[in-house]
């Protein structure tokens, strides 16, 4: 995967929740560039403002100062070019996996107005996407009939169905067991390779960050700013075996030494 031109640029961005006395500065002086096709990870102590940064980039929260641009244009509101997945899969329990994946298409134009006439076509697309992440035979099941890992895969498919420019993942594998997590790493790696999407991953798992990403940003305690940028030079495609190599371990340890006051 070639890394292209800058897609999202944050320059000295700060962000505040609330106002007056109750104001909480969540991120401060944050500078970060996400290039087209790049897979980056943001790691940092709990509460340092990682999720808040996601809200900034997706246009859900305004910046307090600094500049935030997408393809050179300032982001001032929801940009509908993002797909998001969180630690909790947040699937709608009254919809099957396929229909859950379909949800963004019911919102985003031009699909929204074509929903009536092209519904089956869209369904097929959703099914194909679900099958590509190993959910063949489960596409018509309801969320509660799926395992945690399967729900999370469905949630990632939902984030991808409308072919977003940026995939934003906020600790998407945090609630999964170690084996399922590694399985999903590989699925994520393949999705990234096939679709050439740009992705931003927030995680607490440094191995996950190094395995999946091209660049890892380490954030400081709240208010978060970037204290370390680590390029990951491991060649792609990466196998899970790469995680046992000396170089991989060194990268992880290097990152670890920059996190928190421990």
């Amino acid at each position: 995967m070639k890394i292209g031109a800058p897609l999202v640029e944050l320059k000295n961005v700060s962000m505040v929740y609330g106002s007056g006395q109750n104001a909480v500065k969540a991120v401060d002086d944050l500078t970060l560039t996400l290039h087209k096709g790049e897979f980056i990870a943001v790691v940092g102590p709990s509460g340092c403002g990682k999720s808040s940064m996601m809200k900034l980039i997706s246009g859900l929260m305004p910046v307090a100062s600094g500049s935030l641009t997408l393809e050179g244009k300032p982001i001032s509101g929801p940009i509908n070019k993002v797909g998001m997945a969180f630690q909790a899969s947040n699937l709608l329990p009254w919809r099957t996996a396929t229909d859950n994946v379909l949800l963004p298409l019911e919102i985003v134009q031009p699909h929204r107005s074509q929903m009536g006439s092209k519904r089956e076509e869209y369904r097929d697309k959703a099914r194909a996407l679900l099958e590509s992440v190993g959910l063949k035979g489960f596409t018509e099941k309801f969320p509660w009939q799926l395992s945690g890992g399967m729900q999370q895969r469905t949630s990632i498919c939902r984030a991808l169905i409308h072919e977003p420019e940026i995939l934003m993942l906020d600790e998407p594998f945090g609630a999964l067991d170690a084996f399922t997590r590694e399985e999903l790493w590989c699925i994520m790696r393949d999705l990234h390779a096939q679709k050439g999407i740009t992705a931003l991953l927030v995680t607490h798992d440094l191995r996950e960050a190094v395995f999946l990403c091209d660049t890892v940003y380490v954030m400081s305690d709240r208010p978060g700013k970037i204290v370390k940028i680590q390029k990951v030079d491991l060649p792609r495609p990466r196998d899970i075996e790469v995680t046992y190599t000396q170089h991989f371990q060194e990268l992880v340890q290097e990152l670890r030494s920059h996190i928190g006051r421990h």
């Binding site: 997706s58 947040n90 963004p104």
Partner: peptide
């Protein structure tokens, strides 16, 4: 879930 949908506009 609200955020997922709001981000889509």
């Amino acid at each position: 879930l609200r955020d997922v949908l709001r981000a889509l506009g």
